Computed example of a mutant assay.
Amino acid sequence: MRYVITLWAAPLLLFWGWFGLSFYDINFGYVILSRQLHDLVFKLYGEVLGIDPDTIPLLLVRACIFDAFFLAAILAFRRRRQIGEWMRARSKTSVLED
């Protein structure tokens, strides 16, 4: 599961790092980090998808949040016994405290 999360998070970190730097035009002299390339990439994606390029970042945020919840659900399902034991132990201590 560690590898799945790593393989999921690495491209996201690369993309959002590029997005943040290119959005604010912090390019360090690299064309790939320039605002002009940023606008060109999203214009191209917008034309391919047939949608407004300004909506693409919001769609990507929503997809990343969905993926994060999906991976969290898979992780919770895989560790359901430990989570159940933790919840039972916690409920016993809260009953004793009352």
Rank of each mutant, 00 (worst) to 15 (best):
F69A: 05
V31G: 11
M87N: 07
Q82V: 15
G29F: 10
G20S: 06
L14N: 05
R35E: 08
A76P: 01
Q36G: 00
R79S: 10
R90A: 06
P57H: 03
Y45L: 08
G17K: 12
L49K: 03
A73S: 15
N27W: 07
I26T: 13
R81L: 09
G50F: 03
V4D: 02
L49M: 12
E85Q: 11
R78Q: 13
K43M: 12
L37W: 15
L59G: 14
S94H: 10
F15A: 05
G84H: 02
V95S: 10
A89I: 09
A89F: 09
Y24D: 03
L12M: 14
L59A: 14
T93S: 10
D25Q: 00
D54C: 09
L37Y: 15
C64F: 05
L60Y: 02
L12E: 02
G17S: 06
V4Q: 07
F42L: 14
V4P: 01
F69K: 08
V48A: 10
F70I: 07
M1T: 12
L7S: 14
D39L: 07
H38D: 02
E85C: 00
L59Y: 15
S94G: 12
L14F: 15
V31W: 10
F19Y: 11
K43P: 00
P11F: 04
V41T: 09
A72M: 08
K43H: 13
R78V: 01
G50D: 09
V95K: 12
R81I: 05
F23K: 03
S94W: 13
L37R: 14
P57E: 10
R79T: 00
F66C: 02
E47Q: 12
W86E: 13
